[in-house]
Amino acid sequence: MDWLQVVVLAVVQGLTEFLPISSSAHLILVPVLTAWEDQGLAFDVALHLGSLSAVVIYFRQEIWQMMTSSLAAIRGKGVDKDARLGFWVVLATIPVCLIGFLIQNIIADQMRSTLIIGISLIGFGLLLGYADWRMRGTRSEYQLRLKDVLIIGGAQALALIPGTSRSGITMTAALLIGMSREGAARFSFLLSIPVIVLAGGLEAVKLLQVPQSIDWLAMLAGTLLSGFSAYVCIHYFLVVIKKLGMQPFVIYRVLFGAWLLWFFHF
């Protein structure tokens, strides 16, 4: 890989992982729209590590509270709001893991087309716009109920369809059940942690099974750039949605999806 490819892929991963615009769509399209060769599993692992580091650092206090409270609950000291939130994060992750395991080959072989990506960008983008437009909720991530978590977790499984956006669909579901914009975004970001860990771990296992030469300098640069851009993205996204809501991202999704359909299919 040349350095331009390293920078572009790392920044695209870092920015789109947490914005409701589909990181998979953008990363699939980069090699389609350029002459670059596939970056390889090792670099994919590095990019995931960068994104994971960013969200863990940003939410380090919340994560620490969830861990300590969960351990206290296991020891029989009662379940507080932090322990409950930790349990909700784990529970909401189960559907996407189960469904992803069952249909991963179908996704890899049959669903990574520009047609599916374009339709998903537009369709789920309009759904996000509707959820944000009718948003009247004020609940935070600490006020979720079991039914709410099951709905958000089920919605997250739809993100296996390229172009859907994991963050986008979870925020959509959260808004529809009455969460505030910030609460929906924060819970979506916390949900990304186990998903990124599992996705990165799966790629790491594949990497061990198929040894390949590794450009360690490129991997380090990719990790740092992905992490930095993801951290900046999380911070400013939470600022933007307080003032403008989700509509700028809806417009981007619809225009991007329409361009893909026009460029590749008309």
Score class of each variant (00 low, 15 high):
Ala218Gly: 02
Val89Ser: 07
Leu190Met: 10
Ile116His: 01
Gly125Cys: 08
Gly76Val: 06
Pro95Ala: 02
Lys206Asn: 15
Thr172Ala: 06
Gly123Met: 11
Glu37Met: 04
Gln143Gly: 11
Ile103Lys: 06
Thr164Glu: 10
Asn105Cys: 00
Ser70Cys: 01
Gly125Phe: 01
Pro194Ile: 08
Leu202Trp: 09
Met246Phe: 14
Lys206Gln: 15
Asp44Val: 13
Ile103Arg: 03
Cys97Ala: 15
Leu9Trp: 10
Val6Pro: 01
Ile214Asp: 00
Glu141Pro: 00
Arg136Asp: 13
Thr16His: 12
Pro95Gln: 05
Ser192Val: 03
Val254Lys: 09
Gly118Asn: 11
Leu260Lys: 12
Met111Tyr: 07
Ala159Met: 12
Cys233His: 08
Ala157Phe: 06
Ser188Pro: 05
Gly153Lys: 07
Ser165Phe: 12
Thr170Gln: 13
Phe237Ala: 08
Phe189Ile: 04
Trp64Gln: 06
Val205Glu: 08
Ala25Val: 10
Ala185Lys: 07
Leu190Cys: 10
Arg145Gln: 14
Arg186His: 09
Val12Cys: 07
Ile251Leu: 15
Thr16Tyr: 09
Gly245Leu: 10
Ser226Lys: 06
Phe87Trp: 15
Leu176Asn: 12
Asp80Asn: 15
Ile63Cys: 03
Ala199Glu: 05
Ala46Leu: 14
Tyr58Trp: 15
Ile103Tyr: 08
Val250Ser: 01
Ala221Gln: 02
Ser24Cys: 04
Leu126Cys: 14
Gln247His: 11
Ile99Phe: 12
Phe264Ile: 04
Trp259Gly: 12
Val197Leu: 15
Thr172Ile: 08
Leu128Met: 12
Gln13Lys: 09
